[in-house]
């Protein structure tokens, strides 16, 4: 495995930062959009809740939403953006210059995280306004941050897999959001695994995001994880490693395919 040189890292980082600055209006617009959509669902879900339960439920919902934001935004910012990478001819430029596609696509995590954090701030304010509860609570800040990071790493890896799928197939963009929603509902991210029906608990158990999400709930308000803290931590690390390996293997396969047959992911998706 050839690691990207420092010169490449600097160049790609510079490119993405310039681009982020150039399209700052678009980035803020994206964050506002995310914040508003999430708020619609969060406020809708809060209407089911008895107001006396807000002190416990509001933080649970907020952290679940932040986790989902971190897992879904890179999918769009990296995974779906691959169609631009391919359509405008930048893929070939980087291929000829010997720059790693993984490096180029992964660094788009900068705008992704910016979008996720801005929108989460908006949601936190709104939930606080509606419920009168401080949602930014953490019983174990270190585990909370590490679990959020684990979700981010799995999400980047998954986004890279999708980006490379766009090279050899033509994955329709709405599928990305559809799968994100499914993960949120049945994947143990939006709601604790133990509150899901028995069949869905099995599905949640094999969903990589459910384990860091359970740790987040434990680290924020002390809710005991479904499989216990140790098992959830081991499974989280396992899924992080597996996701990174899968992304790397997919990148090699897609690059070989593109060199032999050319790019396929072109057109309106």
């Amino acid at each position: 495995m050839r690691l990207p040189g420092l010169r490449h890292v600097r160049a790609v980082l510079w490119l993405h930062l310039v681009r982020t600055g150039r399209y700052m209006t678009g980035l803020v617009n994206w964050a506002v959009i995310d914040g508003l959509w999430i708020s619609i669902y969060v406020l809708g879900a809060l209407m089911f809740t008895d107001p006396k339960d807000y002190p416990v439920i509001a933080p649970l919902i907020f952290w679940a939403i932040l986790a989902w934001n971190l897992l879904s935004t890179p999918v769009w910012v990296i995974g779906n953006w691959a169609k631009f990478y391919i359509n405008i001819g930048v893929y070939e430029e980087h291929e000829l210059a010997g720059v790693s596609h993984n490096l180029f696509l992964s660094i788009r995590v900068i705008p992704a995280v910016m979008v996720a954090l801005i929108s989460a701030g908006f949601v936190a304010y709104l939930v606080h306004y509606v419920t009168g509860t401080n949602v930014l609570v953490a019983e174990n800040l270190v585990v909370l941050v590490l679990s959020l990071l684990a979700i981010l790493v799995i999400s980047i890896s998954y986004s890279l897999v999708l980006a490379y799928m766009a090279i050899i197939t033509q994955a329709p963009a709405p599928m990305l959001d559809f799968l994100n929603f499914l993960v949120f509902i049945v994947g143990g991210v939006g709601v604790p695994v133990d509150s899901l029906p028995p069949l869905l608990r099995w599905i949640a158990a094999i969903t990589p995001y459910s384990h860091p999400a359970e740790l987040i709930r434990w680290a924020s308000i002390g809710k005991e994880p479904y499989l216990g803290v140790s098992w959830e931590a081991i499974l989280t690390l396992g899924f992080v490693a597996a996701a990174m390996l899968l992304a790397y293997s997919m990148s090699r396969r897609a690059t070989r395919y593109a060199r032999k047959y050319g790019l396929r992911g072109i057109g309106r998706t």
Partner: peptide
């Protein structure tokens, strides 16, 4: 996906809401 897409919104609201409260509320 476009056929099923509206159902995902309903599912998110319903599953999340039911997990944290009740339809009566």
């Amino acid at each position: 996906l476009q056929l099923f897409w509206p159902y995902t919104a309903i599912l998110v609201i319903y599953v999340m809401g039911s997990a944290y409260g009740s339809v009566e509320n």
